[in-house]
Nucleic acid binder design. Structure first.
Length: 138
DNA sequence: AGCCTGACCGTTT
DNA sequence: AAAACGGCCAGGC
């Protein structure tokens, strides 16, 4: 029993939410937290992904049943955790038709206005965001 | 037991 | 524009 019951519930909720991201789209850690009604916990979304079981583990939620590659940070960037990790994620996204780009610093980005999936975001009046918003759920 | 880190993020200097 | 700051909490040591 490695985990508390509460943590177990949260992890399963996170994995199930990530499965809702459509093929060929991406969203942010923060938005997954928001969808689960816990807007203060984007960090724990990352924690769950870190411990996502391998495909061979036989667990119900694993790296082949949960599209982990579709979750990136709120700046549209693939977060780097270990050597080569961001590159592997970029490759997985390319395989499903998502275009990724590199900036001058070598960071890998996805264009949210093209590939973003943010069903709960409402239209903003903010001048900065004026125009580039993401439509509500299907 | 405590201390530190971190697949994060909005707000406030 | 950029950095600091809280909030969050599982896991490693």
């Amino acid at each position: 029993m490695p985990r508390s019951e509460e943590a177990e519930w949260w992890a399963n909720a996170v994995y199930a939410a990530i499965q809702e991201i459509p093929h060929g789209k991406v969203t942010s850690y923060g938005h997954i937290a928001l969808l689960l009604g816990e807007p203060q916990r984007p960090r724990q979304v990352g924690v769950c992904l870190k411990s996502l079981p391998d495909a061979e583990s036989g667990a119900h939620f694993n790296s082949s049943t949960v599209p982990w590659q579709r979750v990136i940070n709120s700046k549209g960037m693939i977060s780097h955790r270990g050597p080569g990790s961001a590159e592997r994620q970029a490759e997985a996204l390319r395989e499903e038709g998502v275009e990724v780009t590199r900036d001058s610093m070598g960071e890998i980005y996805v264009d949210f206005s093209q590939y973003g999936w943010f069903p709960k975001l409402l239209p903003s009046e903010d001048e900065e965001n004026n125009g580039d918003l993401f439509v509500q759920d299907t």
